[in-house]
């Protein structure tokens, strides 16, 4: 069983390119179709995993593993998810320095770098849209971005302040 869990998550880790959310349909198919979890359970786990810090796909893997085989299950699933990225990145770290100075690679990367910025800017806008920020609320992301970008404030402080602010506002509003 541990071995099956491990292999399932290695497969999930290996075939999902482009971040944690891309892994979701694969995880769901494997976990739900094998009857390891009901669809409702999976959606519950998904929503909780989303509100945790850390790497989303790893969080899901640990949840699923824990449900099935407790602590060791969680460990094995996490290891499986991490392993493919770990091995591939390690190989790149080992060899990238050698190809980095190749003229053609250099030219390609000159083109890649501005595109990467666009690839980050787009999810920023789609997230802003999906959480339906009001104009008044826009001050939070704009302020946060400026404080980090211009003010050199550590994002860690922004996150802690946002949590504190949310707690103060949310709990007082309720009562």
């Amino acid at each position: 069983m541990y071995w099956t869990l491990f292999l399932t998550f290695v497969k999930i880790g290996m075939f999902t390119i482009g971040g944690g959310y891309a892994m979701l349909p694969l995880i769901q198919r494997d976990v739900v179709d094998r009857g390891w979890m009901t669809k409702e359970d999976f959606i519950d786990v998904f929503s909780v995993a989303q509100s945790l810090p850390g790497i989303f796909a790893v969080n899901i893997a640990i949840f699923v593993g824990y449900r099935l085989k407790k602590t060791w299950g969680g460990f094995v699933c996490a290891l499986g998810t991490i392993l493919p990225s770990f091995v591939i990145m390690l190989l790149i770290a080992l060899f990238f320095t050698q190809v980095k100075d190749n003229v053609w690679v250099e030219k390609a990367f000159k083109g890649l770098r501005p595109a990467v910025v666009a690839l980050i800017a787009v999810p920023c806008l789609t997230t802003a849209r999906s959480i339906k920020l009001s104009y008044k609320q826009m001050i939070i992301p704009v302020g946060a971005a400026l404080l980090i970008w211009m003010g050199g404030i550590s994002p860690a402080w922004i996150i802690l302040t946002a949590i504190a602010g949310g707690l103060v506002y949310g709990l007082n509003r309720r009562s």
């Binding site: 802003a128 992301p141 946060a144 922004i158 506002y169 709990l171």
Partner: peptide
């Protein structure tokens, strides 16, 4: 309640990541 603050701040964090990479080394 914590997510009332975290959710909008996340947008700011992503924006900051994009802005920080918009420098002379990349452009």
């Amino acid at each position: 309640a914590a997510f009332l603050g975290l959710r909008p701040a996340t947008v700011g964090l992503i924006a900051a990541a994009a802005l920080l990479l918009m420098n002379k080394e990349n452009f």
